[in-house]
Design a binder for these strands. Structure first.
Length: 120
DNA sequence: TAGGTGACGGACC
DNA sequence: CGGTCCGCCACCT
């Protein structure tokens, strides 16, 4: 499966997000050289077996809220708990102060997978 | 094979 | 603010 390499690059970038900081799906996609593939990042995180050492909870959508969905079978609420534990104020409906906790990756992080012969 | 779906994003109203 | 629409692309009937 071609997406396995994609997944690994997603995980590699997500692993770099410092505790207490947040990144968006689109941001992660861009960092691995897959601009516009935010949804794919979502799928990659969905494939992540939980619990996981990867700080997947630090990735949220650009609207600044946790994607609350029945399909996640509770991982959305788990995400909320994990973020609260990191000191991020998540409201009951999943909204959070994204701007205040935005992760600013150092230049060079995006070099991880700039090749990407991916994307369909 | 075709069509519906979604852990997205941005434009628009 | 919120709600809708559309483009996007892998997944699953």
């Amino acid at each position: 499966m071609a997406s396995e390499g994609f997944d690994q690059r997603v995980y590699a970038v997500v692993a770099l997000i410092p505790r207490g900081q947040l990144a968006t799906y689109g941001q992660v996609a861009e960092l691995i050289g897959a601009w516009g593939c935010a949804r794919q990042v979502g799928w990659a995180l969905r494939r992540l077996p939980l619990p996981s050492p990867i700080p997947w909870q630090r990735v949220v959508n650009a609207r600044g809220c946790i994607a609350m969905s029945p399909g996640r079978e509770g991982s959305d609420w788990m995400q909320r708990e994990l973020l609260l534990a990191e000191g991020i104020a998540v409201s009951p409906d999943g909204r959070l102060p994204l701007a205040r906790h935005r992760w600013r990756p150092e230049p060079g992080v995006g070099l991880i997978g700039q090749d990407r012969g991916f994307r369909g």
